[in-house]
Amino acid sequence: MSGSVLFDAPGPKARRLSLTLSIIVGVLILAGLYWLYSVLAAPRPSSGGITLPGMFHPSRWDVFTNPEVWTFIGAGVLRTLQAAGAAAVVAIVLGVVFALLRTAKTAWIRVPTTVVLEFVRGMPVLLMMLFILLAFASGAYWAVVIALGLYNGAIIGEALRAGLAALPRGQREAGLSLGMRELQTRMLIEFPQAFRQMLPIIVAQLVVLLKDTSLGFIVGYPELLRSTMNNLASFYGNRYLFSFFAVTLVIYLIMNLTLSFIARWLSKRTDSARRGGKAGKDIPVDPALAIAQASAAARQAGQGSI
């Protein structure tokens, strides 16, 4: 974070100003949160002359004392993780295959792969899910897994390709000069290095993948979101809708933040490994690699995240 470079160390005046600003902002945020809380907690009159209890009233939360609700939510979490796990395996395998095909020497392989990849990456995952669901009548689970696997495979493949391109050419030449074949050099010399350098991006993409399993909600795969917001909420009635929403949000945040944390830890570890510990801190990171990582990271906004 270059924050400290962008401004001087604050003097007494600036510190006072910054403290005042901090307090004002803090108060504003707290006031906003309190407003949100009070609106949600306020009982509201309903059309039939009945007053409905506020969102935090115990009668809206008592379902969670029922262990069966938790088993149901747990099953939803498991199905989310199951779909995400299967899709992650498909995505990584496809990613390696796509990267190999895209870096192939023959144009007959490279160009069609590029076209297919562009097609897959330019299409919404949701549309792909619907396509697989309707065109292959595969059932919602496979629609979710295959669509997510294909889409994220395309993105991981692109990241790996960028990693391959950023490797020093000597690596490949050394492999070839030892008498290895093209494919051997790729698989044994280049891929392990590219994979390792792109690992943070791949893990970050897996966070996106986990998030995107929630699209199963729309195509009808009973993952976490669908089992809480649809199945449970319609079984127990709309008055629990907010409670189920809050619980679902917390579960998603826990899952995703854990994975994000792992991704960040990995990227820190590879970073320090690349710089050779503390002593070599001033050695600049290879710019080609930095650009490759930055552009690969930017493609991840949501559904590809995005």
Binding site: S18, K211, S214, L225, L249, S260
Partner: peptide
Amino acid sequence: SPVPSLRVFGAVYTELIRNTPLTL
């Protein structure tokens, strides 16, 4: 920005929203 509370708010906002599925 130089104001710590704004920095913290920005970071928390980014983390929370980025880790919430769009569907949610």
